[in-house]
């Protein structure tokens, strides 16, 4: 792999945002994701190669470590920040259509529930995997999901809940979405959820961690 892309990938995995960021200490004073992405573009490397050969693999590696219990939420958030720093250089290529996202993922914490850290982590990981994420925030009512699906008809939907009481609201949202859009794919997640609950409410996929959601999305994006 190109040396620049390899370095960029490592910076994203390690959460090295830019030259001035002091962390991780082993990379102090070195260029970070911000500078390396610009250098890669200036060197004529295609935005698609930067995204698929450096950025996505970097996020993917930290996601795998997280799934395996070898990295924790802070490292995921740090890596996502480096990813964001790199991504800002690619934004114009997405806008012009030169670079394509894998799809649109509409995500929200279900109504009645205000927890958002897990949901944010999923949003950042999925965005880092090359998807456009429409984050509807917390306490999201069914109507808001339906309106957003209308705007992005090919989207995949993600629902998050942290309470046993709001898991019931998740079921309401799934049923109403499926009633109007029977083929709409819905992913669910949150600490009290399980695969059984996902099946019971008629959702399509449950993942206990963001990386599992990415793996599922990548399968259906093909």
């Amino acid at each position: 792999m190109n040396e620049l892309l390899e370095k960029l990938s490592q910076c994203i995995e390690a959460g090295k945002i830019n030259k001035t960021s002091p962390f991780p200490p082993a990379m102090k004073g070195m260029d970070g994701a911000d500078e390396l992405t610009k250098q890669a573009l200036d060197a004529g490397i295609s935005p698609d190669d930067i995204l698929t050969q450096a950025m996505i693999p970097g996020m993917s590696r930290i996601g795998e470590k997280f799934s395996a219990g070898k990295a924790f939420v802070p490292e995921m958030l740090i890596a996502a920040k480096a990813m964001t720093a790199a991504m800002k250089h690619l934004k114009p290529f997405f806008t012009s259509g030169q670079l394509q996202r894998k799809g649109v993922f509409v995500l929200g914490t279900v109504f009645g529930d205000l927890h958002d850290i897990g949901k944010n982590l999923v949003a950042m990981t999925i965005e880092g995997a090359g998807w456009e994420v429409i984050d509807l925030g917390v306490d999201v009512k069914t109507e808001k999901f339906l309106q957003t699906i209308e705007k992005y008809p090919n989207c995949v939907v993600g629902l998050s809940a942290l309470l046993t009481t709001t898991m019931a609201n998740m079921e309401i949202i799934v049923k109403e979405i499926k009633a109007k859009y029977p083929d709409k794919i819905i992913l669910v997640g949150g600490a009290p959820l399980s695969k059984d609950f996902c099946e019971k409410i008629g959702a399509d996929h449950y993942s206990p961690d963001p990386h599992g959601a990415v793996e599922y999305l990548n399968k259906i994006a093909v």
Binding site: G15, F23, P24, P25, G69, F72, V73, P74, E75, I78
Partner: peptide, 16 residues
């Protein structure tokens, strides 16, 4: 609480 043991806290996390 974040999942680390006392010996493997990344420096940035410790600082935060």
């Amino acid at each position: 609480a974040m999942g680390y043991s006392t010996i493997n806290i990344p420096e940035q996390v410790h600082h935060e």
